[in-house]
Nucleic acid binder design. Structure first.
Length: 531
RNA sequence: GCCCCCAUAGCUCAAUGGAUAGAGCACCUGCCUUCUAAGCAGGGGAUAUAAGUUCGAUUCUUAUUGGGGGUACCA
């Protein structure tokens, strides 16, 4: 709705005599106006096109405003120095545009682009329970998958289980030590979870199977943890699958045939050196064993072979050094740079009583995701994690998060949903149904502002996809909530003396309710009917 | 040493190069007989420092300061 208006405006402007002689004018883009401007849409087009047109931006804005004002959807169009154009829509069009009918049935994948995206995230080693940093990656990944799908872009979620290599053996030795009441070896796994797991070892299990057993149990735990966090994976992919089908040998053979690798000091290397990677990387060690890197190249090739056109890997900041070599690998696979994108999220600092909580995996003092979820509640966790841009540190204050009070911003948003549900309950008892407004002039200012905000829901999701971060959505939901609470306070919805206004305000409530519910769903937060 | 990320209000976070830098929490003043006061209305309070590019810089460039992370024939 908004986009068709944008194209219409652009069309009118470009075709007007005043502008038509210029060939490469910049696109007309819509933006929400700042809060002190009484308008629904702003354009900076007059300023961005001033160079080509070689006229004063203010004159361009003046001329453009005159053209835009003639459209039937537009109630007023003004201009301000140095060249801002502000559009105020008619109430009727505003209501219609705020509906955004596409929202309801657009959740089917692959309707917008031919791109097929695979987002890989968490992929923690199966050697212990998931910890807090995994929660941030999980929240990011799950939200991004859902947001892509909501916009009609095909997108799947995958968890890579690193179940090959010598981790299982080390895990087995650590478990064996725990079963005998001893400390695990120096380089083993010292977390308390192995003590618990040792109690569950089947009596008949030979010691050689301890590693396998421990790993399978831990994978099960991780799967439960993700479920409890409301994170869903399309597939849990095991590294061992690659070894079974000799994928590492095959990819190595291919790279050799294409002369993309070389031998030095008895090892096989891939040239990965770039501005961000200071050396080449080994694929096969001098003793003939493949590295993790080779397995990962095989894994990424496997993803492409399954039909995905764009791979997104979500990694913690402690793995960012890994990105340049993977980019080099993708190039060696013959893919365009755009076919691979790594999202690096910075680390999570837990704050308790004003102090940073020190976490050490070796000492076994780290806080697990499960503990955090149970302590703080899934909704608050997901909202916190989703609310911060990935490339900045996230401070997670346990004291604030644990408080189930209005100090916690997630309730501010959820409360809107609960309030609206409550209104509808009362409306139903009195026999009112929501209905879009019919006349064009009885929107209260607060209701108008609220509807105007609804215009930007879709664009917010698009920004999330563009930036690969859901944090724009949490900001939007908080702002939308604020406007609803103001509306609620100023405008009584149900008024038996005025059924027409009642119905149209119920309609506004319905639209807000749908956006809040959808937005919360996309970041994995529940939309309660009562609070 | 080299590489990456960050620095905005007392706290936690926003702001496709645009207008008077927005919210939430905390603090102060008011508001519940009416659809949920986990709310509303009003108030004080911020771009680390220094240059540069630009009609316009929180945003881009460079330097400085301060935080975090990485720099394996580990995974």
């Amino acid at each position: 709705m908004l986009n068709s208006l944008r194209i219409k405006i652009q069309d009118r402007l470009f075709k007007d005599q005043y502008f038509s002689e210029f060939e490469t004018l910049p696109q007309v883009e819509f933006a929400p106006p700042p809060s002190h401007i009484d308008a629904d849409i702003s354009l900076v087009w007059a300023m961005s096109s001033a160079k080509q047109i070689r006229k004063n931006p203010l004159d361009i804005a003046k001329k453009a405003a005159k053209i835009i004002e003639q459209l039937e959807e537009v109630a007023q169009c003004g201009f301000l120095a140095p060249g801002f154009i502000n559009i105020k829509l008619t109430d009727a069009f505003l209501t219609e545009a705020a509906r955004d009918r596409r929202l309801k049935d657009r959740d089917t994948a692959g309707t917008i682009s031919n791109e097929k995206i695979l987002i890989e995230f968490v992929s923690a080693n199966p050697t212990g329970p998931l910890h807090v940093a995994s929660g941030r990656g999980a929240s990011l990944g799950d939200s991004l998958v859902k947001i892509h799908r909501a916009l009609g872009i095909a997108c799947d979620a995958e968890y890579y289980i690193n179940d090959a290599g010598n981790q299982a053996q080390l895990l087995g030795e650590s478990l064996k030590a725990r079963a005998q009441g001893k400390e695990p070896p120096e380089n083993g796994y010292h977390g308390e979870y192995l003590i618990d797991l040792a109690k569950k070892i089947p009596a008949a299990l030979p010691e050689s199977e301890y590693g396998r057993f421990a790993m399978e149990e831990i994978i099960k735990t991780q799967q439960e943890d993700m479920k409890a966090f409301d994170v869903e994976f399309t597939r849990w992919f095991r590294e061992s699958e690659l070894h079974k089908e000799k994928a590492l040998d095959k990819i190595l053979q291919m790279l050799k045939e294409q002369n993309k690798v070389y031998e030095k000091d008895g090892a096989v290397w891939l040239g990965t050196t770039s501005d961000h990677d200071d050396k080449d990387r080994v694929l096969v060690r001098a003793d003939g064993r493949p590295t993790y890197f080779l397995a990962d190249i095989a894994y990424h090739k496997n993803k492409y072979d399954r039909g995905y056109t764009k791979l997104i890997d979500i990694l913690g900041a402690d793995h960012h050094g890994y990105v340049p070599r993977m980019e080099a690998a993708v190039k060696a696979l013959g893919k365009e740079p755009a076919a691979f994108k790594a999202i690096i999220h910075q680390l999570v600092h837990l704050i308790e009583n004003g102090e940073k909580v020190k976490m050490s995996k070796r000492a076994g003092t780290f806080i697990t995701l499960r503990e955090l979820t149970e302590d703080v509640g899934r909704d608050a966790c997901r909202f916190f994690f989703a609310g911060r841009t990935p490339n900045a540190h996230l401070n997670f204050d346990l004291n604030v998060a644990k408080k189930r009070s209005n100090e916690n911003p997630v309730f501010y948003v959820q409360y809107v949903h609960a309030r609206i549900c409550s209104i509808f309950k009362a409306a139903q008892e009195k026999g009112f149904e929501p209905l879009p407004m019919t006349s064009s002039e009885n929107l209260a200012p607060q209701e108008r502002t609220l509807l105007s905000k609804l215009l930007w829901f879709r664009k917010t999701l698009e920004t999330c996809v563009k930036d690969l971060s859901p944090h724009h959505l949490t900001s939007y939901l908080t702002e939308l909530s604020s406007l609803f609470h103001a509306f609620y306070d100023a405008c009584r919805v149900i008024d038996e003396a005025d059924p027409q206004t009642t119905r149209s305000r119920l309609f506004t409530c319905r639209l807000v309710q749908e956006r809040i519910a959808k937005g919360l769903e996309l970041i994995g937060v529940s939309a309660p009917e009562h609070m």
